[in-house]
């Protein structure tokens, strides 16, 4: 297969959460999300209370995929930043390397300039986390006999999912 599945360990998860929390505070944003390009939510920070984060993650990935398709048609490699302006809330979306998407929702407590500045710094930090993660996975794949909890999945386990 071309793309290996994404695996996130606790240590990386902590680093991502820490970076998102920092971004959310410094950028005075409402919510910051990190989404896998395949549409899975990796982490979210801020006022997530009444937001359907799962749907938002899937739609963001669809949005980025569609924009990437448009870029290709125009001969561009990609459009790395998207910005949607609303009456109250705005969304700033940017690519983090080839694997993830950073989404920041903000209102008039912040400004596009501040968001862009802070996002740029966080994108670099988050990209470094993903680079390390990729190296870690490569290393663990190279080591024989790594213990995965899924090696012992049985037919009964799967049956139990469907009641």
């Amino acid at each position: 297969m071309l793309n290996p599945g994404l695996v996130l360990f606790e240590e990386d998860s902590r680093l991502i959460d820490k970076e998102l929390k920092k971004l959310n505070e410094l950028a005075r944003a409402k919510v910051s999300f990190l989404v896998d390009k395949d549409g899975q939510l990796i982490s979210s920070m801020g006022e997530t209370g009444d937001i359907d984060t799962t749907s938002l993650a899937s739609l963001t990935a669809g949005n980025i995929a569609a924009t990437g398709g448009m870029a290709k048609l125009l001969g561009e490699k990609e459009f790395s930043i998207l910005f949607h302006e609303g009456e109250k809330d705005n969304i700033h979306i940017s690519l983090v390397g080839q694997r993830a998407i950073l989404v920041v929702v903000f209102d008039d407590r912040s400004s596009l300039g501040l968001i862009r500045l802070r996002v740029k710094r966080s994108v670099a930090a988050l990209a470094a986390v993903f680079d390390n993660l990729a190296k870690k996975i490569e290393k663990s794949n190279a080591q024989e006999g790594g213990q995965s909890p899924f090696q012992e999945i049985t037919e009964e386990d799967i049956e139990s999912l469907f009641g």
Binding site: N3, G5, L6, V7, L8, D12, S13
Partner: peptide, 15 residues
């Protein structure tokens, strides 16, 4: 592809 999150103890798959 599947997403395995050891921190949240979740597996997500796309069909």
């Amino acid at each position: 592809m599947s997403f395995i999150n050891y921190s949240a103890r979740e597996i997500s798959c796309k069909i």
